[in-house]
């Protein structure tokens, strides 16, 4: 039980999906259709998270879905901090989960 893409055949709005788009997400090949966002393609597989938070190392995925919360950030083709809910997938995109750990305090410093 989880997020899914409503199949075009069952969709009451009589939708026709276009060309397939294949992207790599953390090394796994996922297929969507042209025009889907990166978040949409990942969510359609039932996966809900693809970022690890800096302070608490907690999983995050889509929260606001409209580019406001920045929870869904991914690295796309080596470029970090891309909002997966806004970026439409391009065939061949290499998407990697983002985890920016907090800097470790140096021993002997005031924080350390």
């Amino acid at each position: 039980m989880s997020a899914y893409l409503r199949s075009a055949a069952e969709d009451p709005i009589r939708r026709r999906d276009g060309e397939p788009v294949a992207i790599s997400v953390d090394g796994e090949r996922l297929t969507g259709v042209q025009g889907q966002s990166i978040a949409g393609i990942i969510l359609a597989t039932g996966r809900l998270d693809w970022r690890v938070t800096s302070a608490g190392s907690r999983p995050r995925g889509v929260f606001c879905g409209i580019g406001v919360c920045f929870d869904c950030l991914v690295t796309v083709n080596d470029e970090p901090d891309v909002r997966a809910c806004l970026r439409r997938a391009v065939h061949g995109d290499v998407v990697v989960q983002q985890h920016d750990p907090l800097p470790t305090p140096v021993e002997g410093s005031i924080d350390g």
Binding site: A3, Y4, R6, G40, D49, V62, G65
Partner: peptide, 24 residues
């Protein structure tokens, strides 16, 4: 902050803009 918690706007945007349902 758990995955699976969405704003209402996210559910709408994904449904209308992608035909994705955020859950069953």
């Amino acid at each position: 902050d758990l995955p699976g918690v969405f704003t209402g706007g996210a559910a709408q945007a994904l449904a209308k803009g992608e035909r994705i349902a955020v859950g069953r």
